[in-house]
Computed example of a mutant assay.
Amino acid sequence: MTPKPVLHRNDPDAAPLIGNIKVTRDDWLNLGLDVLIRDGVERVKVLALAEAMGVSRSSFYWYFKSRQDLLDALLERWEQTNTVGLIAQAEAPAARVTGAVLNVFRCIANPGLFNTALDFAVRDWARRSVPVQARMREGDARRVTALTQMFARYGCPPPEAVTRAKVLYYMQLGYDMAEPEESHDYRLAMTPEYLKVFTGQAPTEAELAEFAAYSRQFWQDLSR
Rank of each mutant, 00 (worst) to 15 (best):
V97E: 08
C107M: 02
C107I: 00
P93V: 04
N110E: 09
R135F: 12
P111L: 09
A117V: 01
M136I: 10
N110A: 05
V97M: 09
N103G: 07
R123L: 02
F105K: 09
A100S: 15
A92W: 08
R106L: 00
P93R: 03
A134D: 15
M136T: 10
G112E: 11
A117W: 02
A126T: 06
A95F: 00
L113Q: 01
L113D: 00
D119A: 09
G112A: 08
V104P: 04
Q133S: 13
L102V: 07
A126C: 09
R127P: 09
F120P: 00
T98K: 12
V122I: 05
A134H: 15
R106C: 01
R135E: 15
V97F: 04
V97I: 13
R106A: 00
V122S: 01
N115M: 07
G112P: 06
E91T: 03
A95W: 01
I108K: 03
R128A: 12
A121H: 11
L102E: 06
P131C: 15
A117R: 07
A134E: 15
V97G: 10
F120N: 02
A95D: 13
S129N: 12
T116M: 07
A134P: 13
A121D: 08
D119Q: 10
P111C: 07
V130H: 12
A100F: 03
P111K: 11
S129L: 11
T116V: 13
R127S: 14
R106N: 00
N110C: 05
G99T: 08
L102N: 09
L113H: 02
D119T: 10
E91C: 03
V122Q: 01
A121G: 11
V122T: 02
N115H: 14
R128P: 04
W125N: 06
R96C: 01
V132L: 10
V104M: 04
R127G: 14
V130P: 05
Q133H: 14
N110G: 04
A94G: 09
N110W: 12
V130Q: 10
V122C: 02
P131G: 15
I108G: 04
D119V: 06
R128V: 08
E91S: 06
